Computed example of a mutant assay.
Amino acid sequence: MPKPSNLDNPEIAAFAWGRFRRMMRLMGLITLAAILIGFAWLYWQHGFVSVHVYIGAALGIGVTIMLTGLLMGLVFLSHGTGHDESIDDNIDADWQDNEN
């Protein structure tokens, strides 16, 4: 039977998800800054080419940074609340049985 997760506790979960939301807001600001820097670099290198180039650059930069921040944030959330330790790891027991 798996151990209970700290995310089952409403107070701990509220704190953890609040911290996650703050981190995602910060990542949104960093993403916006990176997009603006990318626009400036594109304009400096090539001038105004087409609006489609700028839309594609904004989407590429924005999705990449936000997805990276989201995945890393979930890793931090899972580890910070002890949720990782609550998982029942049967694979480890299988490996130990095969070694003997």
Rank of each mutant, 00 (worst) to 15 (best):
S5T: 05
N6R: 14
N6H: 08
N6V: 11
L7E: 00
L7H: 05
L7D: 03
D8H: 09
N9H: 01
P10C: 00
I12W: 00
I12S: 06
I12C: 00
A13Q: 04
A13V: 01
A13E: 03
A13P: 00
A14H: 03
F15T: 05
F15N: 14
F15Y: 10
A16Y: 05
A16C: 13
A16I: 13
W17F: 15
W17N: 12
W17M: 15
R19Q: 14
R19N: 12
F20C: 01
F20P: 01
M23D: 15
M24T: 05
M24A: 12
R25L: 15
L26I: 06
M27P: 00
G28R: 00
G28S: 11
T31V: 03
L32D: 06
A33C: 06
A33Y: 01
A34V: 09
I35E: 05
I35G: 01
L36C: 14
I37R: 10
G38E: 09
G38N: 05
G38I: 06
F39S: 04
A40F: 07
A40R: 02
W41V: 15
W41T: 12
W41M: 06
L42W: 07
L42I: 09
L42G: 02
Y43E: 09
Y43V: 09
Y43F: 07
W44C: 12
Q45N: 04
H46T: 09
H46L: 14
H46Q: 11
G47Y: 00
F48T: 01
F48E: 10
V49C: 02
S50C: 03
S50L: 03
V51R: 02
V53C: 06
V53G: 03
Y54A: 03
I55S: 10
I55F: 10
I55Q: 11
G56I: 00
A58E: 00
A58M: 09
L59Q: 05
L59F: 15
G60M: 05
I61Y: 01
G62P: 03
G62W: 11
G62I: 00
V63A: 15
V63L: 14
V63C: 12
V63K: 08
T64I: 10
I65N: 05
I65D: 08
L67K: 07
L67W: 14
L67N: 08
T68G: 13
T68Q: 10
G69K: 06
G69A: 14
G69C: 08
L70M: 15
L70E: 04
M72A: 15
G73R: 07
L74N: 07
L74M: 12
V75Q: 02
V75G: 10
V75M: 09
L77C: 10
S78R: 10
H79E: 13
H79M: 15
G80K: 04
G80I: 02
T81E: 01
T81P: 00
H83Q: 09
H83K: 05
E85D: 04
E85K: 10
S86N: 08
S86P: 01
I87D: 04
I87G: 08
D88N: 13
D89R: 07
I91G: 00
A93Y: 11
A93I: 12
D94S: 05
D94C: 04
D94H: 12
W95Q: 15
